[in-house]
Write a protein that binds this DNA or RNA. Sequence first.
DNA 1: CTATAGATGCCCT
DNA 2: GGGCATCTATAGC
Length: 214
Amino acid sequence: MPASGERVTSNDIAVGSPAVPWTSSRLAGDAPDVAPRLLNAVILVGGCAGRIVEVEAYGGADDPASHAHRGRRRANASMFAPAGTLYVYRSYGIHCCANVVTGPREEAAAVLVRAVEPVAGLDSMRVRRPGVRRVRDLVNGPGKLCAALDIGLDHDGIDLLDSTSAVRLVHDGTPPPPDPVVSTRVGISRGTDRLHRWMVPDSAYVSKGRPSGG
DNA sequence: CTATAGATGCCCT
DNA sequence: GGGCATCTATAGC
């Protein structure tokens, strides 16, 4: 942790006290090791903030469910960027999903952010998600949270660890849960046996997606 | 509450 | 043309 104790704010809204940026060393390691460590980290974008409560790890060429499985393409190029890069892809032609690239760089591994708990900017999220009633339904899915936080393809490839980036990954002192809930990944048809999904226990903000395989 | 269809962009064959 | 790391509306119980 920086001795400065930088107070990270999002449009004058204090998110944590003190909140510190993540560093690439905190992201070092294989995606399945890093993923549960990202639980309770905070995503900042514009005036909004969300605490990560659900993630999935996607490996490189060896993982048949990973976008990097068939090698580098234009759409997945940022998976091959350094750890801390944001990888955004379009899903089913309609939605966007956000990933934290973890490296090692040749592996092109990343962690999909599947659900967050709203922390700041609720009004903005509601504007972008008209018709949604419950707070948890604003952001309890990978496409939903990108819509609510206004994360799009424009943000693909940016550095989450740079204090000047539009989308940032920070830490407010809340540690990851010591015993996260583990399951298989959601909504995939290959690699369904891997226990690569982690959630904050008893969180009301996890997605409704059901595990595939088991 | 569960189940299902349909919307849609992009890469693959 | 097929297959998706999805979501919503709608129908039914």
